[in-house]
Design a protein around this nucleic acid. Structure first.
Length: 702
RNA sequence: GCGCGUUUAGCUCAGUGGUAGAGCGUCACAUUGACAUUGUGAAGGCCGAAGGUUCAAUCCCUUCAACGCGCACCA
């Protein structure tokens, strides 16, 4: 692969001429697959699972950032001689994907019900094929060194088996149960949702003060305050706080529920807040999770007045068939006419919306499947409390523990079509997409099968589980990370990863999160086209200095492009100087420092420091710092100072130092900017040269 | 309401108990010698506000504000 320098380099650097070819060279080498790495049998493993992107659409810069972070880690470990495996894949993403396909069909005026389940699922599979492939191509274009031969989709047959096995395990252990309980329901998606799949938004509402007459003394009232007067049609009690002096004498009396003209008790329950409204709260056990719990404590009947389509039921009597909004109007009018509406007040309150379609959530009584959480949550919490799993940055551990310490049972059944069917007879529901994602670290390695890869060789599961690092975003710490941890402990009896690196959320210019649904996403391929993949990676990492969020800014990609060019020209100069100057790789690293002149000694000392701090920073997940250090060294110490000095002399030692420093720089930069470094490496005058991606990572000699 | 984070140059962000830094942008000058995607230099900041500790505070403490996030409430 030796090339004439004059052929290999012509300024300015053009990533388009290089990146595709270099990637092909890596793929042909087979080294993305750790089985092909030239390492000893007892080499340590280093495994990462790519958080499988949803097949809802193309990747944006947030994904690009996470892919780059992981590629930096895996490339460094590979150069350090580890059996390095990075498993890629994609996620079927239940509701989210079903929704985008439904939206797409809607453009042609077709609904999923027009097509029917089977035909609709065919459409979803078509969508999955298209976007799944685009996603993998995007990752390759960015330089991701995943082992593509191990690519997994969360609805592959083998994965399906994992999901069924997991369900069966929980079921037989009594951890999965079916129950009629109040759950979050999206009337648009027509499915239940878990507590985590809601987004609360502050909205202006009205607080209605309604008089509930005492049965024995209809001239006397208990006034309740509510933002949802229509749900009063399903009230089965009014509750006050046990210590509330205002109601002490009334507790236990019977009230008349207006409109329905039903007798309901006035009860005392400590879940009621004295300060809110009048201190008396209407209890609608079929349409509020909190009221359902009060209802369980007081054995209250359940009256379901809102159905799964968001329409009022027969039980609502005067409002039967109306939607909730119209029913509210009718209820308020009726109360006014009866003189039972005391007053109305404006109120700012939080309203739950569906995290996938934004529709307001109803809480309704419904028969669903649940996973018992107490034991599992405790396992997951202990894994972090004991230090077995660590978060970077550390403060995310609190977010994780807060949720686990307070979580309710997990509603895992969904009334949609796209997903894993619940593996029991007579049930058409599918599983929450996070149920399958939770198994990712081991299901993607073949679980439940431990079958040997080949004669005598350990299976992937044995060899690569547990993994070392999970790199992901903060928005799915509880949805995903916590569930992987208890799933790993439950099924593998071992934590799935020891480090969780939470990367910053990439925000668009206006400060909103980058996301497809918000229309704020930027396709990394557009930027790769403009600046090159190395510069795109550079720009993202350059900006990532360790805070929670980053306002994505394209100017850093320009800096990356300039830096690529600088590096290219540095290499041009060094290679010109060192033409016909070939050293064996093994000897190459050893330069007797004492015999050198001051400028040579200084640049080598600075290089040592750089090697040390880059090494430490990457291992501490300080990727931005590492890149800044490298940039400063390359541009300001090496180019501005040493190379300028080297122009003034033509000694053997100067040539050695030039070559040696460049070689070290290429290695250190390779995880960050893999393409250009690999390309320059092909022209380095080094004997017994391998691909840079598997060359030895530099260490600071002490 | 509770908690966490952020607030530094036009923009995106570093940083330190003692004359404040980078990238990009701006301005001036420099062009045959690796690189104009360059080089040299310059302008540009009461380091969110107010108190406090200290010889000295952008940094430590308190309070406040704005923004972001999580939790609770969301009757």
């Amino acid at each position: 692969m030796s090339q004439k320098i004059s052929d290999a380099f012509s300024a300015p650097y053009d990533p388009k001429k290089v990146e595709k070819t270099v990637y092909r060279r890596w793929e042909e080498s087979g080294f993305f697959n750790p089985n092909n790495l030239p390492i000893a049998d007892n080499a340590k493993t280093f495994t990462m699972m790519l958080p499988p992107p949803n097949v809802t659409g193309v990747l944006h810069m947030g994904h690009a950032l996470n892919a780059t972070v992981q590629d930096i880690l895996i490339r460094k470990k590979r150069m350090e001689g580890y059996r390095a495996l990075w498993v890629p894949g994609t996620d079927h993403a239940g509701i989210a994907t079903q929704n985008v396909v439904e939206k797409d069909l809607k453009k042609q005026g077709v609904s999923r019900h027009d097509l029917g389940r089977e035909k609709f699922l065919e459409k979803v599979w078509e969508w999955k094929e298209k976007y799944g492939n685009i996603i993998l191509d995007q990752l390759k274009t960015l330089g991701a060194s995943c082992d593509w031969s191990r690519t997994v989709f969360t609805m592959d047959d083998s994965y399906k088996k994992a999901v069924e096995t997991a369900f069966k395990h929980y079921y037989e252990k009594g951890l999965i149960y079916q129950g009629e309980r109040v759950i979050n329901w999206c009337t648009r998606c027509a499915t239940s949702l878990s507590d985590l799949e809601l987004e609360y938004k502050e909205e202006k509402g009205t607080l209605y003060y309604i008089k509930y007459p005492l049965k024995d003394n209809p001239a006397t009232f208990v006034v309740v305050a509510t933002t949802r007067p229509e749900t009063m049609l399903g009230d089965t009690a009014v509750a006050v706080h046990p210590d509330d002096a205002r109601y002490k004498t009334l507790v236990g009396k019977t009230l008349m529920l207006p409109i329905q003209e039903k007798e309901i008790p006035l009860i005392a329950d400590s879940a009621v807040e004295k300060e809110f409204g009048t201190g008396a709260v209407k209890v609608t056990p079929a349409h509020s999770i909190a009221d359902f719990e009060i209802g369980e404590r007081h054995r209250l009947p359940l009256v379901k007045v809102i159905d799964e389509r968001g329409k009022m039921t027969q039980e609502s009597r005067i409002c039967e068939g109306l939607n909730t909004q119209d029913c509210r109007v009718k209820v308020v009018e009726t109360l006014k006419a009866a003189g039972l509406l005391e007053k109305e007040e404006p109120l700012i309150h939080n309203v739950a919306h569906c995290y996938r379609c934004d529709k307001v959530i109803e809480q309704i009584l419904s028969k669903q499947w649940f996973v018992k959480m107490d034991g599992l949550a405790k396992k997951a919490a202990d894994a972090v409390r004991s230090g077995a799993v660590s978060f970077y940055p550390k403060n995310f551990e609190k977010l994780y523990l807060d949720w686990l310490d307070n979580t309710r049972d997990w509603c895992i059944s969904r009334q949609i079509w796209w997903g894993h069917k619940i593996p029991l007879e007579g049930v058409d529901d599918v599983l929450d997409t996070w149920f399958s994602s939770a198994l990712w670290p081991f299901a993607a390695l073949g679980w439940p099968s431990f079958a040997k890869a080949s004669e005598g060789k350990p299976s992937d599961l044995e060899r690569f589980y547990p993994t070392q690092v999970l790199s992901t975003g903060r928005d799915i710490i509880n949805l995903w990370v916590s569930r992987m941890i208890f799933s790993g402990l439950e099924f593998m009896r071992e934590i799935p990863f020891s480090n969780v690196y939470i990367n910053p959320t990439v925000l668009a210019k206006d400060g909103r999160r980058m996301s497809k649904s918000l229309g704020t996403g930027i396709d990394p391929l557009v930027l790769v086209e403009k600046y090159g993949a190395d510069a795109t990676r550079f720009g993202l990492i350059w900006q990532m200095m360790g805070v929670q969020d980053m306002h994505f800014s394209e100017e850093h990609l320009l800096a990356g492009k300039k830096f690529s060019n600088k590096l290219w020209n540095i290499a041009r100069f060094v290679l010109q100087q060192t033409e016909n100057f070939e050293i064996r790789n093994s000897k190459f690293e050893k330069i007797q420092r004492a015999k050198l002149e001051k400028p040579e000694r200084e640049i080598l000392e600075k290089l040592e420091q750089t090697i040390q701090s880059v090494h430490d920073d990457i291992d501490a997940f300080k990727f931005g710092q590492a890149l800044h250090t490298l940039y400063d060294f390359v541009w300001h110490d090496f180019a501005d100072v040493y190379i300028e000095h080297a122009k003034t002399k033509d000694t053997h030692n100067a040539k050695r130092v030039l070559s040696f420093t460049l070689a070290a720089v290429l290695k250190l930069l390779h995880p960050f900017m893999p393409f250009i470094t690999e390309e320059i490496w092909t022209s380095m005058p080094i004997a017994e040269k391998k691909l840079l991606m598997i060359e030895t990572w530099p260490t600071a000699s002490s």
